[in-house]
């Protein structure tokens, strides 16, 4: 394991960041947590992340716009959408715009970990994650 996976987590729900940061930290990810999409975008201008995890419906810039921005700026970054308002049309739109995955809330930390593991593999920097528990 050379360099930790850089992850930006954006969700206006405080608890999501509070819980996922340590959870993802355990599987070797460096997580930066944001509640405000404007601040997150600013940070993304400064730094290229390996993975961006974002909520969709937020005040101001929403997740779909974040997705567009990231796709334009750094095509190699994998974007994972998480939303409480999952709908078939929204999911298809996100995938069409190039999201790596789309997860409906509520989800378990392991669900996200599994997706991140897949993303890491796709990035060519696999991480250690025991996938067995997922789907149980």
């Amino acid at each position: 394991m050379s360099k930790p996976l850089e992850i930006l987590l954006l969700d206006d729900e405080v608890i999501v960041g509070k819980r996922l940061k340590p959870a993802l930290g355990k599987i070797g990810c460096a997580v930066e947590v944001f509640q405000d999409s404007a601040l997150a975008i600013k940070r993304m201008q400064e730094k290229e992340f390996d993975i961006v995890v974002t909520d969709i419906y937020m005040d101001g810039v929403d997740g779909m716009q974040v997705l567009d921005l990231v796709r334009k700026k750094s095509p190699r970054t994998k974007i994972i959408m998480i939303t409480g308002h999952a709908m078939i049309s929204l999911a298809r739109e996100a995938m069409e715009k190039g999201a790596f995955d789309f997860i409906a809330k509520p989800f378990k930390p392991d669900d996200l970990k599994a997706v991140i593991a897949r993303a890491a593999k796709a990035l060519g920097a696999p991480i250690q994650f025991d996938d067995k528990k997922v789907g149980g």
Binding site: V16, R19, A23, A104, K105, F107, K108
Partner: peptide
């Protein structure tokens, strides 16, 4: 039904952690 997913997600993440 959608709105409730946010607090539910918070609960679920917290409980699992």
């Amino acid at each position: 039904a959608h709105e409730i997913n946010n607090p539910l997600n918070n609960i679920m993440l917290t409980v699992h952690m």
